[in-house]
């Protein structure tokens, strides 16, 4: 698993105690367009995620989960506070290819075959053809798409497209993986299967994952911690520690400990919604 070259070294590495993802008093206010009131999407977000941790973000629709990921991926600039990845501002981390992003919509290039889609970030980075294709093949096998290298995206099912998008996001071996409801549009069985694969992948690759979901059970199954957010302006109202033993399987969901955690999660979530 030869990682892609990175243009600059990361000072955050090696010090050990450094949080890999750090948000301090993060605030995002979208300017109101055409007389509309400005939208306070995020308020006082404080979050530390250590290397290799899997953290889920859950909360009512419109509470700013996507906004938080988009700040970390340098897709939007926060209006207050700081966000840092490996002690860099998000922009530097992005230019160093330290961040991967999986969107709810697979967003594959329809005119490229799966192989070229997965290799895209490496191609954009200037990795030589043979090298990037070898890496892409590796990842395609890893996400269970072997045999579909030469298929076009339209020839794949929704779940397969999402796997290709995950492989693409992993191609530059990012340290931080941001996933915004990646399985939101899938049926339960496919979702379960991809959850299992993600469990295994994130452990094996020691990726730090920030995972947005609307399913508390999915969050509990996958995560080390679950951050529950409140409705607008979005704040983190509770960080649940998920101390279920690893490795986890789908059967982990049938334990009492799991049920307890899921129930707690639902209660906190309801608080966030303002349901009493």
């Amino acid at each position: 698993m030869a990682g892609a070259e990175r243009p600059s070294p990361s000072p955050g590495e090696g010090s050990g105690r450094q949080a890999q993802v750090l948000c301090e008093d993060l605030q995002v206010v979208y300017p109101g367009e055409q007389g509309a009131k400005p939208v306070h999407a995020l308020q006082d977000i404080n979050l530390e995620v250590d290397e290799g941790q899997f953290i889920s973000l859950i909360g009512p629709s419109g509470c700013g989960k996507s906004t938080l990921l988009r700040v970390l991926a340098d897709l939007i600039t926060p209006t207050g506070g700081t966000a840092r990845i490996n002690d860099h501002p998000p922009r530097t981390a992005r230019l160093n290819r330290e961040v991967g992003f999986v969107f709810q919509d697979a967003a594959l290039l329809e005119w490229r075959r799966v192989l070229a889609n997965v290799a895209l970030p490496l191609e954009l980075q200037g990795v030589p053809r043979a090298e990037r294709q070898a890496r892409a093949r590796e990842l395609i096998e890893l996400v269970g798409l072997k045999g579909f290298e030469r298929s076009y995206p339209r020839q794949l099912s929704g779940g397969m497209r999402q796997r290709a998008a995950i492989a693409r996001a992993m191609s530059t071996s990012p340290k931080v993986m941001l996933m915004d409801e990646p399985f939101g549009a899938l049926d339960q069985i496919t979702r379960d299967r991809l959850n299992l694969e993600l469990l295994e992948l994130s452990q094996r690759q020691r990726m730090t994952v920030l995972f947005v979901t609307h399913s508390i059970r999915e969050a509990v199954l996958l995560s080390d911690r679950v951050a529950v957010m409140s409705a607008r302006p979005g704040r983190i109202i509770k960080l649940l520690e998920i101390d279920l033993p690893r490795p986890r399987t789908l059967e982990s969901r049938e334990t009492d400990a799991f049920e307890r955690l899921a129930r707690t999660g639902v209660h906190v979530l309801e608080e966030g919604f303002g349901v009493s």
């Binding site: 991926a73 340098d74 897709l75 992005r94 230019l95 290819r97 961040v99 991967g100 992003f101 969107f103 919509d105 967003a107 290039l109 895209l120 970030p121 954009l124 980075q125 693409r168 530059t172």
Partner: peptide
């Protein structure tokens, strides 16, 4: 597609 544009942005294109 704007999400595809985001993919290019994250990949520092």
């Amino acid at each position: 597609d704007h999400t595809v544009m985001d993919v290019f942005h994250v990949a520092a294109a």
